[in-house]
Design a protein around this nucleic acid. Structure first.
Lengths: 340, 340
DNA sequence: TTGAAAGCGCTAACAG
DNA sequence: CTGTTAGCGCTTTCAA
């Protein structure tokens, strides 16, 4: 802050009045004479006065800051959700403080602590993939500090959350495969503790039932969400005596890795293996073949999360809502079997 | 902040000592008896005391927050740079306040104002593509408020900055094309006011000279950085009576759009047209053909920017450095002409 | 219609 | 070794 900002005191001194007069004049308090009010406001503008949020924060016990914890900053999904959060936050005069957990439980716990120490007014969080224990949110829940989860959620009976219609989407994908002639439909899941893993897996199973397809355990892979691990899982599927004719991946990273492996294995998409991902990536359209995928309204998810957050600020004890965002299956070339 | 955090006063009351004693004990002041120090620190831990940064900020006139303004949040380049900034900021106990200008001059100006009003200690900025006037940084420069530019920069004689070796990289790309047999090398530039546009264009020209290739104005396109505009620019190149046999794009968005257009036009990459981008995208490897590209050390750029920022905090009036990051040309399939 | 004073949480100079 | 006091910028009683 180098050169100090001008304060009420500065204005007061210059006008030879008291600080409280200036304070009141600035907010058009009826007690103050029009004359005075005008003079003060004029000077304030001239001197470029803006109230010091630190002082206000100290006084009102509010910082107008929201802490946001995401597993990473660089994937499209998270940066896009953050963008949505930022949008609504800005509308409400709030700033967001972003912290990346790098998919690490330990860092997530630290981030919660640090952000609270910074006196954010609450948190919007997407769980790291390692997180299996949820105690670190006790402080928030017990003290009625606003908390909202998105995408990867927990404790939904106590904490409001925003999610995609995960199960339904996965079910739809499975049926889409079936309708395109696939009969050995594989699924590459994420870490089992993640809500999205559970739900998308369930949807997959339901989809199989819908189509009267048998469930075959060998067709279900899983991975932490790294490209490397996804490649391993894909190769395992490819090496089955009877490889799948369709693969559904839990997210972008997984499906792009799978795509690479399939090509490298010498198989053709979609002729040999159809592929569908769960992604909002711009790049779905730029890969070859273009990728059929379930598309999140990511920006909207961020906006919803922020909206829930502000509701929480208003009514910290209201029963927690869960908002389910509709996804849509965008059909491109990776799932269109040749002549049908 | 719902339930108030515990304060020094709370601890003092509970221990029946003065606030200053508690304050000193907490920082192991030699004046305080071991006995007292122990007792205080124990209680502080038990009550989960953490100093209130608002109070500290007010007192010390520092907020430990850096404002970061980027053109957008969702492209890999920016989210990755932000990630780097966050990393170094965290190491120094600082938080970053992110604001997106959405490539709009007006929003950039607003962001500068808002962030300063929030009392960030300084700004790290990448200019919006619309920005041609740089007055909004006067406040910072004149008041010695730390400011660092990255990637798209201005006023480099007054403000420290981090950039890629733009000209050199573009020159290298041009030569790479030449060495692979291309003779009609096109370049799709960004808005001319951007430093990166100027420099990469210069590099392109130098490259042509190096190879003794004539400069042909019709081979230079330009666009704002949207996919749509990039497509238009590409189509214009493709419709030349004698279309280029190589295209270099100023960034990811442009080159991916170009890739799509070329395919749609019925031409083959790299046989008909070689393609090289300026990108750090993971997706370079997933498109078909895989994309040869100049790769930024984006995360490192963020770290450097933050480092410069902290130097600036230390020495606000030191002569401004410009750090040039080495890029590297990663050769993949999009630029390998068949039999050479 | 205006001013004085207290207090938000903290530190530091000054007393004792 | 510990307490008192002032002050960072602001709002808000309470007094005048």
């Amino acid at each position: 802050m180098a050169k100090r900002h001008v304060s009420l005191k500065d204005l007061a001194t210059e006008l030879n009045v008291s600080i409280s007069t200036v304070s009141r004049a600035l907010k058009n308090h009826p007690d103050i004479s029009c004359e005075m009010t005008r003079k003060v406001q004029e000077l304030a503008r001239a001197r470029n006065y803006t109230p010091n949020p630190l002082a206000m924060g100290l006084l009102r016990q509010e910082t107008r800051m929201i802490g946001v914890i995401v597993p990473d900053l660089v994937t499209h999904f998270f940066s896009s959700v953050i963008s949505g959060i930022e949008h609504v936050a800005k509308e409400n005069g709030y700033y967001i403080l972003i912290s990346s957990s790098s998919e690490s439980y330990k860092k997530e716990v630290e981030s919660v602590r640090n952000l609270l120490n910074t006196r954010v007014e609450g948190l919007i969080v997407c769980l790291s993939q390692e997180t299996k224990i949820f105690d670190h949110f006790d402080v928030l829940v017990n003290n009625e500090i606003p908390l909202v989860f998105f995408d990867r959620v927990c404790r939904t009976d106590e904490v409001p959350s925003v999610v995609a219609d995960n199960a339904e989407a996965a079910r739809q994908v499975t049926r889409h495969f079936y309708e395109n002639g696939c009969r050995r439909i594989a699924y590459i899941n994420g870490p089992e503790q993640l809500s999205i893993s559970k739900l998308r897996y369930e949807g997959y199973l339901q989809g199989l039932q819908d189509c009267n397809l048998p469930f075959e355990p060998e067709l279900v892979g899983s991975c932490n969400l790294s490209p490397e691990d996804a490649s391993v899982a894909t190769r395992k599927l490819l090496r089955l005596k009877n490889h799948p004719d369709a693969i559904f991946g839990i997210n972008d990273t997984v499906i792009f890795a799978a795509m690479r492996e399939i090509k490298q294995f010498g198989l053709t998409i979609p002729t040999d293996i159809s592929l569908v991902g769960f992604t909002g990536e711009f790049h779905s359209t730029v890969v070859e073949p273009s990728l059929t995928s379930i598309t999140h309204p990511t920006f909207e998810m961020g906006k919803e999360a922020a909206r829930l957050f502000f509701e929480r600020i208003q009514h910290p004890t209201a029963p927690p809502q869960q908002i389910e965002m509709k996804t849509s299956l965008v059909i491109r070339n990776s799932s269109k079997k040749k002549a049908l």
